[in-house]
Each structure stands twice: as C-alpha cells, then as structure tokens.
C-alpha cells in the first residue's frame, strides 16, 4: 500500500462536553478521491477545520506529506501543499476573477515582498492563472468583478485558485453546493480527472456526485467514523443505512 498524503491519527476535539471529533482516523492516499459524508452536525466542518489548521485537536496527530502538521496554522499548511476550497466561498470580492487567481499563483510563487513590479503584468503569474481559469471554464469571465459572479461560478473560481497552488492534496468542502444539475455534472467530470494530479478529500452532500466519484467513503456520525469503504461497501453497510442514508438508499 502506498503511503498516504494526509492522515489523521485518532484526533479528538471537544466543545465543552460535546465530542465534535472522536478518535477520527482517516487517510487520503495518492490518486484517490476520499469522500467524507455524514448528516448535519456530524462534525464534518470541525474535522475540516482541524485538517486545514483553523483548529488544533485536543488529542491525536495530523500528518501531511510525511510531516507532523498538528501544530501548524493555516498558512503553513497551505504552503506545505494543502489546497482548500470553502463551503461558503471565501474570495476577495472586490477583485476581478483574474486577480483572485493571480493571488493564488502569487501565493505559490511566494515573492510577495515586491513593491514596484505590477502583479497583473507579470507574465508567469498571469499565464498560470489563465491556465487555471481555462481548466475550470471561467476564462471568459476573467475581467468580471468577483462579487458579480453567481454562487456556482464562485465555487469554480475557488477551485481555479486552488489549482494555481499546485497542491499535493485538495481539501474540498461541498464544492457542488449551489451549482445546479448541469454545473454539478461538469464539476464531477472535472474532479474525476483531477484526482490523478492530487488526491481529494471531499466533503459533499450531493450523493450522486459522491457515489460517482469516491474511491472510498468515510461516514461520520456524532463525531465518529462509523464506516470507511468503497461506494458498494458503504451502500451495503447496515449501520450506515440506519444512521444516515435512510429508507431511500
């Protein structure tokens, strides 16, 4: 078995007496899409925040690309190669689409203490940004103000910014939300191809997308992983059926 890119090692997080994460151990292996599903309030967001570095677990360790990153913040984890997209789009809304993506390219390049050279005339940064916009299908909107984009387009833009980081792993929090049927289908096709570049830890409510994409699925209920397996295994798991998928699954 290949070494996982990302691994949580029995992480636990309490909010007062509430166990938001309990002994969670999941792995993201090279080339895979690992979906994380669970009903509302299952602790998915808390888990994502611990993986991204917004929160530190009370117990347990997080490994990324062979390093213990448990104590690192969001900036250091992004620099280490974790490409994140948000459940609620988090972009520079006054900037154009292209400026947001150039910011991503700048983040990867790292030369931010440059005060005189114009950023948007930097051929390397702009080329990288435009290539990413091309891939997500937003290139025609590159001069649009980000605030004027639809929710779905903002999602695509976040993915484009994440691409410019050339991450070692993607952490995507509900990328399908707000996309509509056709957009969701397009993004599903896109993520399908993306896993070869870097594995994706995908939190998603769109079950069609999850079952179409995921190599493995982990089911989180009350902060605990109750099952991990292939789509077929998860469908057949009786605990999952009662806890989450309900009658129609």
């Amino acid at each position: 078995m290949t070494e996982p890119i990302l691994r949580t090692d029995s992480i636990t997080k309490y909010f007062g007496a509430v166990k938001a994460s309990q002994d969670v151990s999941i792995e993201l292996r090279p080339g895979e899409i690992h979906a994380l599903i669970g009903p509302n309030g299952a602790g998915k967001s808390t888990l994502i925040k611990q993986i991204a570095g917004n929160m530190t677990p009370d117990a347990g360790r997080i490994w990324f690309d062979g390093r213990d990153v448990t104590q690192l913040g969001t900036v250091a984890r992004a620099r280490a190669g974790l490409g994140r997209t948000f459940q609620i789009s988090s972009l520079a809304m006054e900037y154009t689409v292209l400026q947001n993506v150039v910011l991503g390219a700048l983040g990867r390049d790292g030369g931010v203490m440059s005060f005189l050279r114009p950023a948007m005339k930097d051929k390397a940064l702009v080329a990288e940004a435009e290539a990413a916009l091309e891939r997500v299908g937003l290139i025609d909107l590159k001069s649009t103000r980000t605030a004027d984009l639809s929710h779905g387009q903002r999602r695509q833009l976040e993915v484009a910014v994440a691409l410019t980081l050339r991450p070692k792993a993607f952490l995507m929090d509900e990328p399908m939300a707000g996309l509509g049927a056709s957009g969701s289908k397009r993004l599903t096709g896109f993520l399908d191809g993306l896993r070869a570049e870097a594995p994706i830890l995908l939190v998603e409510h769109d079950m069609d997308a999850v079952f179409a994409l995921a190599d493995r699925i982990s089911v989180l209920v009350y902060g605990e992983v109750i099952a991990t397996g292939t789509a077929a295994e998860i469908r057949a798991n009786p605990d999952v059926r009662t806890a989450y998928l309900g009658e129609d699954a």
Binding site: R84, A92, G107
Partner: peptide
C-alpha cells in the same frame, strides 16, 4: 488588497 477584503483568502494561498 486581498488581506483587506478577506484575510482567510490570503491564508488559503499560503501568505500571512
């Protein structure tokens, strides 16, 4: 300018 608009966005691209 991005830090003014959205600090989280800047962190996410690996800048402080």
């Amino acid at each position: 300018g991005a830090a003014r608009q959205n600090a989280e966005r800047v962190q996410t691209v690996g800048l402080d």
